[in-house]
């Protein structure tokens, strides 16, 4: 079940990235192509088989997981910048790219790298499951490492959430409000990942569902805005107005 969810998410995301290649070549909104490409890579790296294969090639000490963390950070930062700018959330944009945002990103990055260097990270396994199973000091460090890795996406999601709720309540076209709804659900899901450490250990499948709900909501939400533009946005003609400027 979880495998199906993983591979189909990968397929959806990869497909969208591929479909966006022509417009990226034309120079339209390259960031969006990078968002989808990075997300595809992130999903690929969170599936056991490709993860192990890639990590073995990188030396087998879970460097791939560290890369995965930064791929996620880059993707979520790009999403945050684009969405806050698109939805006119200047306050949110400042919270991401301003001093606070950069400080949070630097702090979280330092923590992730630091904890990674502290632990004995040998033994490729996605989600560093083997290190957890080994127990001892490293198992504790893995928990901290995971928490730090989830902190930045959660920060960005919480910044995005108010703008999404505002867009939902407004009178924007339906596809955009639907997209805002999906992005809001995704943001809530990412914020929920903060509570993973306090979840009972039997809730593993629930964690997967939350993670993939977040990814799918973001991917589909962003794709929906793009589709709406393709569908309605070609002609910049405005509805007839009486006012002249």
């Amino acid at each position: 079940m979880i495998e199906i969810l993983q591979w189909s998410t990968l397929a959806v995301c990869g497909l969208i990235a591929v479909v966006r290649v022509p417009s990226a070549v034309r120079g339209e909104n390259r960031t969006l192509f990078w968002i989808f490409a990075l997300m595809t890579l992130a999903i690929l790296l969170s599936i056991e088989a490709p993860y192990v294969a890639i990590d073995q090639a990188l030396g087998g000490f879970n460097l791939a997981n560290l890369i995965l963390r930064f791929v996620i950070f880059a993707a979520i930062l790009c999403v945050g910048i684009r969405v806050t700018r698109g939805f006119g959330a200047t306050d949110g944009y400042r919270l991401l790219t301003g001093r606070t945002g950069m400080a949070v990103l630097a702090l979280v990055s330092l923590a992730v790298v630091g904890v990674f260097l502290l632990m004995d990270s040998r033994g490729s396994s996605s989600g560093l499951a083997q290190i957890s199973i080994r127990g001892g000091r490293d198992a504790v460090l893995v928990e901290y490492y995971g928490a730090a890795g989830r902190a930045y996406p959660a920060y960005v999601s919480l910044v995005l959430l108010p703008a999404m709720v505002r867009a939902l309540r407004g009178s924007l076209p339906l596809p955009i409000r639907t997209a805002a709804f999906l992005l809001a659900v995704g943001a809530v899901a990412i914020a929920l990942t903060l509570f993973f450490p306090v979840m009972p250990s039997g809730w593993g499948p629930a964690k997967f569902v939350v993670n993939y709900t977040a990814v799918l909501c973001f991917v589909v939400g962003l794709a929906l805005i793009w589709a709406a533009r393709v569908r309605y946005g070609r002609s910049p003609a405005r509805p007839g107005t009486f006012t002249e400027k």
Partner: peptide, 20 residues
């Protein structure tokens, strides 16, 4: 009404510009 429509249109264009 027209002002609101124009505002919505502007916002929609901005969204498309950034995310389309």
């Amino acid at each position: 009404t027209l002002k609101r429509q124009e505002h919505d249109q502007e916002q929609t264009n901005k969204i498309w510009e950034n995310l389309g």
